[in-house]
Amino acid sequence: MNIFRILGDVSHLLAIIILLVKIHRSKSCAGISGKSQILFALVFTTRYLDLFTTFISLYNTVMKVIFLICAYITVYMIYVKFRKTFDSENDSFRLEFLLVPVTGLSFLENHSFTPLEILWTFSIYLESVAILPQLFMISKTGEAETITTHYLFFLGLYRALYIANWVWRYHTEKFYDQIAVVSGVVQTIFYCDFFYLYVTKVLKGKKLSLP
């Protein structure tokens, strides 16, 4: 465990909590892509099946359980509790365009051809593209609430810190996981355009709106 990994996990948790607090306080999930949140719930579910097979550490177990619970609460808030405020009209990204290639690729390129490994690989590939429905929604409506941009910033920061974590682990432990690293780099690239807008607009006190 290194500082980049801890900070990465903390910013991941912070992102998830920011989103929950936003929905809870405003009693609205306007501007949030329910599809992205369903994908994240699916990511955690398929990745953390090892909760039943492998014990890594108390930290690892507790964090996995928290992520799972938060992901399902978020989906519940969007599709049940505050359903009336959900902007399904603009959440129109076609999930099959992500799910079909990701499923295919997880069968083709994995560490071993076993159900748990294929599901783990599926979750890694899916996480790398899960934010696309949210980014698509923002580009479609041309704007995002400031709190939503904070959510995206911490989610992107988590990915960037994980890359630093992998560089660190490679140098200190000679450890690297090619599937996680390649997917993680791809995922981080998706946030670059958003990071640029966040720094040039949101941090200067302006609302994020696209021309």
């Binding site: 990994r5 996990d9 090892d50 097979t53 492998t54 748990l116 974590n165 996680a180």
Partner: peptide, 10 residues
Amino acid sequence: SMDLAKHDEL
């Protein structure tokens, strides 16, 4: 190299 069954990252 890595232990296949043990994915220790979140």
